[in-house]
Amino acid sequence: MHPIRRQRLQWVALIVVAASIAAALMAYMLGQNASYFYAPSQIVAGEAPIGVNIRAGGMVVEGSVDRSMDSLEVSFIVTDGLENLQVTYSGILPDLFAEGEAAIAAGKLDSKQILQATQVLAKHDENYMPPEVADTISEAYQRKQQHQPEPQEALQ
C-alpha cells in the first residue's frame, strides 16, 4: 500500500476505535450516574430499586417535618396525593423548603422504603411545583384511576 494511504488508514482506524471507546464509556457512565425520578406511589408500588441513587419528590405534608432535638437529622413525608414516602436527611434544608410546597429528595431507598436522602432540593424560583413532580404525579394519578374507580375518596 502507498505509505500516505496507509498512514491515512491508520488515522481513520485510530479515530474510529477511539470514538467507539469514548461513546461506549459515555453510555456506560450515563447509565451509572443518571438518577431516575420516582413518585411516592411508584416507590410504594415497589417500582423503584433499593440501594440505588434515585430522586423522589412531591408535596411536603403539612406537619410532617420532624427535626431531631440534638442533631440536624430531619425527617418528613412527601406525597403525590396517593401514597406517602418517608424521607430522612441530615443537614441544612434549602431556603425554599417548606411544608405544603414541593421538594425533591435525592438518595437511596432502604429496605423499609424510607428514602435516605443525601440532598434535598427546593426550586430557586417561585415555582412551587417542579415539572417533574407535576408530571409524575399526574401520571401516577391517571394510572391509579384506572385501577380504582373512585380515587378522589383517597384524597379527601
Binding site: M29, L30, N33, A34, S35, Y36, E132, D135
Partner: peptide, 28 residues
Amino acid sequence: LVGTLYPLIADVLELGKISVGPPYFNFF
C-alpha cells in the same frame, strides 16, 4: 454536551425523568 442534553433526549424518547449527576462529568 451529551451529559447536558441526555435528560432532554431521554425525556423525548420516554426513557424516564433523569438527571445526570456531577460524577459523570468529573469522570471524563
